[in-house]
């Protein structure tokens, strides 16, 4: 597909989402925000997993860094949402720098286990520092305030702030993937020894990828705190870290749009199943299993392959 067509598709998605924000009912608007937040989280995460080939189980903690920093700024300093988000992203960056510094020395399962350990450390810190974090109750009473004089108190208004950051994330992640930096990350994934023989400091690049993906987690976290009016210690738990992994797998690891499609499937499919049965976990699990095992390369990967095949047969027929 040409670059122009790709941009057209993404502009179409943004326009569709804007229409949803203007025309959808309050529940659809809310679900739309849930999808976008998960997509921001997963798009950033996939820079690490899909692009660099590092499986992290600690990004939930970075998400929580974002939401708790945002909440603390909101409750104690200023209700300006942008400053809150800035604090959230900055804190997530700081923590991912520290955690990443220790973790990127390893790869594969060792890397995964270390990130899991650090993530759970942050989880227990949040759980135990009750005076600051509210323990298991979390922080409550977050207000949304206004951006440049525009109120974002109502869901229909806040939606467009989320949409703005979603669009920004799409653009940034796309730019990162097609930049020289993004290509080096792909090189590291394919063969880190060869990449280092090419004179590239592999660890530093891994760390950079970790921090960048951590910042997107922090962004999703700080927006999530505003959406839900609270922070949740379980957002730092490894079970939450597994969400972007699943979403990337469902959508397709090697594709840019994979996490996006995965988020839609993850949020909307679950909601649909919940309407029919209380054993939703069972059905959700079975369907996810079918997608992950049946569609190699995820929904988008599978779709791309199908399209390419069709194009090839058409060419062959000519």
């Amino acid at each position: 597909m040409s670059t122009k067509a790709t941009y057209a598709i993404y502009l179409g998605i943004i326009a569709g989402l804007a229409a949803l924000g203007l025309l959808g009912d309050r529940f659809m608007v809310y679900m739309g925000m849930r999808v976008m937040l998960l997509a921001i989280f997963a798009l950033g995460y996939n820079l690490l997993l899909g692009r660099t080939g590092l499986l992290s189980f600690g990004h939930g903690a970075l998400y929580a860094c974002g939401s708790y920093s945002m909440a603390l700024v909101n409750l104690h300093l200023t209700q300006d949402p942008l400053l809150g988000i800035l604090a959230g992203v900055a804190m997530a960056a700081l923590f991912s720098l520290i955690v990443g510094f220790f973790c990127v020395r390893n790869t594969e399962i060792y890397f995964a286990m270390l990130t899991l350990a650090f993530g759970m450390m942050i989880f227990s810190l949040i759980w135990n520092l009750r005076e600051i974090t509210g323990g298991d109750d979390g922080l409550v009473g977050i207000s949304r305030g206004s951006v440049f004089g525009l109120p974002i108190v109502k869901d229909g208004q806040f939606y467009f702030l989320v949409l703005f950051f979603f669009g920004l994330t799409l653009w940034l992640v796309h730019r990162i993937r097609s930049s020289a930096f993004g290509l080096v990350l792909a090189g590291i994934r394919e063969n880190h020894q060869r990449t280092s023989f090419a004179g590239i400091p592999v660890k530093r690049y891994r760390l950079a990828a970790f921090v960048v993906s951590g910042m997107f987690a922090g962004l999703a976290g700080s927006l999530g705190a505003m959406l839900q009016y609270n922070t949740d210690p379980f957002s730092a738990h490894w079970s939450h870290s597994a969400e972007p992994v699943l979403v990337s797998l469902i959508g397709g690891l090697q594709t840019f749009s994979g996490p996006l499609a995965g988020s839609v499937v993850f949020v909307v499919l679950r909601e649909i199943i919940e309407r029919y049965t209380q054993n939703w976990m069972l059905w959700f699990g079975i369907i996810l299993l079918a997608i992950i095992m049946g569609l190699r390369g995820g929904v988008m990967g599978g779709l791309e392959k199908r399209l390419r095949q069709r194009a090839a047969t058409r060419k062959g027929g000519e």
């Binding site: 009912d25 309050r26 529940f27 679900m31 298991d136 109750d137 409550v140 009016y229 609270n230 909601e271």
Partner: peptide
């Protein structure tokens, strides 16, 4: 999500239930 589904999508007049304190506090706003 449940509360929002009940009110905005299913058309609930009232809600009830909730086991955990953290959930109850989160639901207030």
């Amino acid at each position: 999500k449940n509360a929002r589904y009940f009110v905005d999508s299913w058309g609930a007049d009232f809600l009830a239930g909730v086991d955990s304190s953290g959930q109850a506090l989160a639901l207030a706003p």
